[in-house]
Design a protein around this nucleic acid. Sequence first.
DNA 1: CAGTGGTCTAGACCACCTC
DNA 2: AGGTGGTCTAGACCACTGA
Lengths: 246, 246
Amino acid sequence: MSPMKNLHSPTFSPLYRQIRALITRSLEAGEWGPGDVIPSESELAARYGVSQGTVRKAIDEMAAENLLVRRQGKGTFVATHNDPRSLFRFLRLSANEGALPPIKSVPLECWRAKAGAEVAKTLGIEVGAPTIIIRRLLQFGEEPVVFDELYLSGELFPDLTLDILKANEMSLYSLFETRYGVRMIRADERLRAVSADRVSAEFLKVAEGSPLLLVERVAFTYGDKPVEWRRGLYSTRNFHYHNVLG
Amino acid sequence: MSPMKNLHSPTFSPLYRQIRALITRSLEAGEWGPGDVIPSESELAARYGVSQGTVRKAIDEMAAENLLVRRQGKGTFVATHNDPRSLFRFLRLSANEGALPPIKSVPLECWRAKAGAEVAKTLGIEVGAPTIIIRRLLQFGEEPVVFDELYLSGELFPDLTLDILKANEMSLYSLFETRYGVRMIRADERLRAVSADRVSAEFLKVAEGSPLLLVERVAFTYGDKPVEWRRGLYSTRNFHYHNVLG
DNA sequence: CAGTGGTCTAGACCACCTC
DNA sequence: AGGTGGTCTAGACCACTGA
């Protein structure tokens, strides 16, 4: 790689960001899958014709954003949702008291439909394009806590059915990643307080009209491409959504 | 500074973390106040007897945690809450549609009391120690959106009164920092959905029993010392709490 | 122009893991 | 022993700021 000293160029980006873009492209292309080791820093430095320090800085950034995971003495790995530590990066729930009981995901429904205006806009697809809709209940111990409704672009998850969801104990994002090669790397959430309607109240075993936490999420894969829209109703009697402001 | 190559020591920490600790100590001691420039990287390197690269790595970490702010060509500055960009790091509210109207903070009450068991535990002070309690309303445009109740350790804010709160247009954290030298660097929040009681409903101009977002916050200053406990009720009809999962 | 942070390099050595 | 990432150094040059 030439240094590309594009002086005074408006599109200037330092060498380590160009390296980062190359590594990201290999991730998108699937050259290294989730959980795999990527080549060592010195190998990458040789491949791209830069110093090890420059590769290192590129990887530093990607590790800080949870795209890669460094393990001293072993190598650098592609991040994966199969890692239990990564689960709570995308499920910000804690128990009001004591430890969190074991989590169980209960798929309820899964069907296909054509994208309406709102879904199409959110997922960046055409109105009328195929989508998948999933309804699902999250239980902590035996207590139902989250009632989720998900919208996915249908093309990315060709054969997804309720049976497949039921057959997989792993988290949804693990399934998406393992079976469909779609890795979620970031999500935006919007939180509001709402009143439980009849259906939600029934699933969550609370009184109709009870206050519930509404969590709307748009999840993105590589290249900030939106691939999931999710609306979750959280029962926050015994659990809460936690967040760190830094 | 000697390299401190404490091999095989359980308390080993790399040189740049030791430098970081020294810089942090100077921040705590007030050697450089919020908004000030700190010495240049080469100056600090000379002062501590390490290379510039090592100082740089220490500052990198602190900048990533919003303790310091780098400005190319100008220097490195102590972060401050007077910066409008920093306001929304601690107030995660957005409008459901359109831009956010101007924010107005309306102090309602401010009195002193002895710490109860819960407050004492949260703030890490003795039961019966002096505390300050503040009630305040946050308006977006003319619409009341957040009804806050704050508990502060009394010793840190000696002369704080309702009049002082009313006389300062700036954010609370700016005031705490400017007037009392207490800088909030991190906060943990817990979110739940609750029903509006009579008092809150009145302040927020919603019907009694309406769903509200309850946000409990513990804010920390240097050394992870808790100094504020806050309970806020958010009316989320036209606004929402936003969060990024990465 | 001088001073700041930002980038890039090359080389040495340490800490950890595996064989 | 040999590989990996982690730390530390020294030096060169670039980009931005303000006098």
